[in-house]
Design a binder for these strands. Structure first.
Lengths: 226, 226
DNA sequence: CGACTGGTTGACGAGGGTCAAGGACCGTGG
DNA sequence: CCACGGTCCTTGACCCTCGTCAACCAGTCG
């Protein structure tokens, strides 16, 4: 069930995975404490689809993507997690999506006591219910985007979501490459790139670099998001 | 906890909303009981997006669709609810999707005590968390379908989902029209119709009528669903 | 019988995917 | 210092899947 550890590209991350963090990751039982801090390098896998779900994660810093794969490699990213978000909780101890670090990431892992276990504190269950409900609502909004919006509307909605969640007013530093944005929006990276160009040509955004976006006209952007 | 119930009542009869049922629907406060039985006619609105959420519903018989609309009328159905399912619970007392009866429907409504209210029983919160988590997982699976599968794969997956959830082995009575299937799968009704024809021509299904589907080759159907 | 809802099928075109080439921007090493 | 390799991004040409528009058919109800 536990897949072999693939940390091929640790070297690309500015922040290396320490031996201790590496050990934590696959054998977190070594810790007796209720919460375990962990670090992951860029593109490192936090957990994989199908793996048994022994821990819940709270993101401290960085960005995480949750995704599902089809057998032929098609991928759908269901969410980007930002600091403060929790992820990885499941009802049946099996992860039904995988989670990877988009950039170097710090998390805190909590032992996950099979959800319906009676000795889980009521307050914790309530907190989790709130977070799960919010996640469900966001996912339903995303269904509408994937099922019914065109490419330009999808990118506009994505930029607005990122502005809102990152708390910045009109300048945005995207943590993820075009390929991840494409897999989040149900498009190809080429189409995402073309839509960026279209928004730029319309004077709605400015691209200081591929990852650094300035929103020049939020009103028009909201109008495009449908 | 999860009460399994026989498949939907799919009679097409235009069972009118009785005056009492209509009153229940908009002023359920008239009832003092903790649970209120209600009936809804085909296509009747159970609650609308944006409405305040005073009740949670448990489906007794029939089929319900949950959907969201864009301002120009594009619609995405996020789920079909079958008997035993619960729907309509929200974290902030505002419905973020609308719910309508696909066929004549019987539900039981429970007063919804602002979720984070301390006097909600812990058992109820746990039950709700379980159902919400299952809903979240199904919605994430649907993201993958909408973002990455083609028309034929979508219809195949839909038919398999309906077979599985209705508990039937290989004959299926679809409660919903092509238009609803299309809005669930992110397609047009014409494309849905063409994909039905394609599956029929391939000998994988048989169409005794538009709503009555026999699965002839489940293995091939599963292979098509990707 | 006619009106209405729901479903099928065909012709056509557009939106976005595919394939390919090339540019920008790294960090590393000669 | 520049060359090199790798990753990421952009842009163009072409084409295919699915949406649009329209006609027609099947049931059902009044």
């Amino acid at each position: 069930m536990l897949t072999p550890t693939p940390l091929a590209d640790i070297s690309h991350g500015p922040e290396k995975l320490t031996p201790q963090a590496f050990a934590d990751r696959r054998q977190p039982d070594a810790f007796q404490a209720p919460s375990v801090p962990m670090n992951f390098a860029r593109n490192a896998e936090i957990f994989a689809e199908g793996e048994s779900a022994g821990y819940v994660y709270k993101l401290v810093s960085g960005v995480v993507r949750s995704s599902k794969l089809l057998s032929d490699g098609r991928r759908q990213i269901s969410a980007f997690h930002l600091p403060g978000d929790m992820f990885g909780f499941e009802i049946d101890d099996i992860h039904h999506a995988s989670a990877e670090a988009v950039v170097p990431v710090k998390v805190v892992a909590y032992k996950w006591p099979s959800l319906m276990n009676a000795d889980v504190s009521s307050g914790f269950v309530r907190e989790l219910l709130g977070r799960t409900m919010i996640g469900l609502r966001q996912t339903q909004d995303h269904l509408l985007l994937l099922g019914r919006k065109n490419a330009l509307e999808r990118l506009a909605a994505f930029l607005l979501e990122m502005v809102r969640r990152s708390g910045s007013d009109h300048t945005l530093l995207l943590a993820m490459p075009r390929h991840d944005i494409a897999d989040y929006l149900g498009l190809t990276l080429e189409t995402v790139s073309r839509m960026f160009a279209e928004l730029k040509d319309a004077g709605i955004i400015e691209l200081e670099s591929a990852r650094r976006v300035s929103i020049r006209d939020v009103v028009k952007l909201k109008a495009m998001a449908a």
